[in-house]
Amino acid sequence: MSPKKVKPPFTFPRSLTERPFHYCPGCHHGIAHRLLAEVIDELGIRERAYGVASIGCACFLYYYYDVDICEAPHGRACAAATGAKRARPELAVFTYQGDGDFAAIGLTESLHAAARGERITAIMINNTVYGMTGGQLSPTTLPGQRTTTTPEGRDPRVYGYPLKVAEILAQFPGVAFCARVAVNTPKRVLEAREALRRAFLAQLEERGFGYVEFLSACPVNWKLDPVSAARKVDELTETFPLGVFRDLT
């Protein structure tokens, strides 16, 4: 009997470098990174991928991916991605941004890129805080949530209510795929992967803007241990329901 070649069930993604992540223990950025690399591999787009690193905890994106990556100023990732994609439509262009980057300082660029139906894929890591700068209020901070700049909790009379970005984008005709996912259970990880794949298909099939929002644990700034932070993501889903809000793929 000749030995049969069995495909190993778990291999290291080609698009990921071997550099260890710098993220805090229990941070979900790492899981999102791995899924993104797997999807780039599966779609066979590593050699034409163009990533935009934004300003936030994931600003070192370029250390972890073996694809071309450009840094954009805080909030401007979708504009930079627009320029790259328009200049070279053959590239598979994606941004990787935080909730502050995408939905506070960069909301204009994000919404207009989506409204124009740019053939780009935007990944937004919603951890409800400004992780990198030490856990301040973000546009997705929950009412009552304590942050370093809302020490008594977010007061809706002062700061209003969280922005539900996925729901907003779902109304745009230019958006071809839009979903909110989480990665705190194995099932959700698989769903997140599929959402990412479709968000890339949105641009590869020339349908429009692809968007995936990850509800992402930030144990350090939530002042929780990694396991409790992962559980806390379930609470977030009450304000930020998971699901696919628009899919033209």
Binding site: P73, A79, A81, G83, A84, R86
Partner: peptide, 9 residues
Amino acid sequence: NMLLGAVST
């Protein structure tokens, strides 16, 4: 920033 993205390619 679109300019930045375009010239980067």
